[in-house]
C-alpha cells in the first residue's frame, strides 16, 4: 500500500512535516530570489525518483532545461540520464500555455502518458501572473491546481515572493494561499550582519507540523536543514532579536530578585 505521505527525501524536512507532504496535495513553496526554491524543487523530484520510485515532471518557465541540467550536475544529479530512463521530463514552456486546452487535452497530458509521474514541480507559478488579469488569476490557478489533483500529482508550486525579504505581510497578493494545501516559505534573515536562511511551514492541511523557523543552507549536496532559530524572535518581522535567557541565579546575583 502506498504511504499517504510524499516524502521530500530530506530527513529533517520530512520530520518537520511529520513524515512528508500529504500525497496528492498542492504545496506552495514561496521565497524571494536566491533562496533555493529551484534547488529544493529539484531535490524533491530527484529524491522521488531515486529513493521512492516516484517519477516526476519538472516544469520551467524561466530557465531553459539546459541550464537546469548544468546546475543539477553540480549537485551530482544526472537529469538527462533520468529522462533517457523515462523517469523524468524537464518541460520548458510559456506560462500562458498552462491555461490552454484542446479537446480536453492539456499541455502536460502527453508527458504524463510518457512517464506516469507521481510528482510535479512548477518553477514558478508566479509567472502566470504576467499573463492573467489580476481578477482572473485566482480562478485560473484554481483550475490548474484541480487539474494536478485530478491527475493524482503531488505538486510543489514555486512562487517568487519578493515580500519575504523584510516583514512578511502576505505570501501572495493574489490570494493563492487559500487554494493550496500547504505553504512553505524560504526567507532570508539578517543576524549579526550576516545573511542566513530560514525555512518555515505556514500551513499543512490535515497534519500537525513543526512550527519553528529552521535554518538551512544550500550545500554542494543540496538542501541541508540545520537547527531551528530558537534563540531568536522577530524573524518573521524582519527584525530578529536574540532572546535573553536569564537564570534565577543571575537575577539573584544582580539583586533584581531576593532569595525567598
Amino acid at each position: 500500500m502506498m504511504d499517504d505521505r510524499a516524502k521530500t527525501g530530506i530527513t529533517e524536512l520530512d520530520n518537520m512535516l511529520r513524515g512528508g507532504f500529504m500525497r496528492g496535495d498542492a504545496v506552495l513553496l514561496a521565497g524571494s530570489a536566491g533562496m533555493g526554491k529551484t534547488t529544493l524543487g529539484l531535490e524533491y523530484i530527484i529524491n522521488g525518483i531515486t529513493k521512492y520510485r516516484e517519477n516526476g515532471l519538472y516544469v520551467t518557465f524561466e530557465q531553459l532545461p539546459s541550464q537546469i541540467y548544468r546546475d543539477s550536475a553540480n549537485f551530482g544529479w544526472q537529469l538527462k540520464k533520468m529522462e533517457e530512463e523515462d523517469t523524468l521530463r524537464v518541460i520548458c514552456t510559456s506560462p500562458n500555455l498552462l491555461l490552454e486546452a484542446s479537446d480536453g487535452e492539456h499541455l502536460f497530458d502527453s508527458f504524463i502518458d510518457e512517464v506516469h509521474p507521481k510528482r510535479i514541480v512548477v518553477d514558478s507559478l508566479s509567472h502566470l501572473a504576467m499573463f492573467v488579469p489580476q481578477n482572473e488569476l485566482r480562478k485560473e490557478m484554481y483550475k490548474f491546481v484541480m487539474y494536478l489533483k485530478t491527475k493524482h500529482l503531488s505538486s510543489l508550486l514555486l512562487w517568487e515572493s519578493p515580500g519575504l525579504m523584510g516583514q512578511v505581510q502576505s505570501i501572495t497578493e493574489e490570494g493563492i494561499s487559500f487554494l493550496v494545501d500547504a505553504i512553505l516559505i524560504l526567507k532570508p534573515v539578517e543576524i549579526e550582519s550576516s545573511m542566513r536562511k530560514a525555512l518555515g511551514i505556514l500551513k499543512l492541511r490535515g497534519s500537525d507540523h513543526d512550527k519553528r523557523l529552521t535554518e538551512y543552507e544550500i550545500t554542494s549536496e543540496g538542501f541541508k536543514l540545520r537547527k531551528p532559530f530558537v534563540e531568536y524572535e522577530g524573524i518573521m518581522s524582519g527584525s530578529p532579536r536574540k532572546i535573553l535567557r536569564v537564570s534565577e541565579a543571575d537575577l539573584l546575583k544582580s539583586g533584581l530578585i531576593k532569595r525567598r
Binding site: 531553459l64 524537464v90 514552456t93
Partner: peptide
C-alpha cells in the same frame, strides 16, 4: 537538442 522538453508556440520559439 539542448532542451528536448521544450514545448512552445512558434512565436515564443522565435523569441527564445
Amino acid at each position: 537538442h539542448m532542451n528536448p522538453g521544450l514545448i512552445d508556440t512558434p512565436e515564443a520559439l522565435a523569441r527564445r
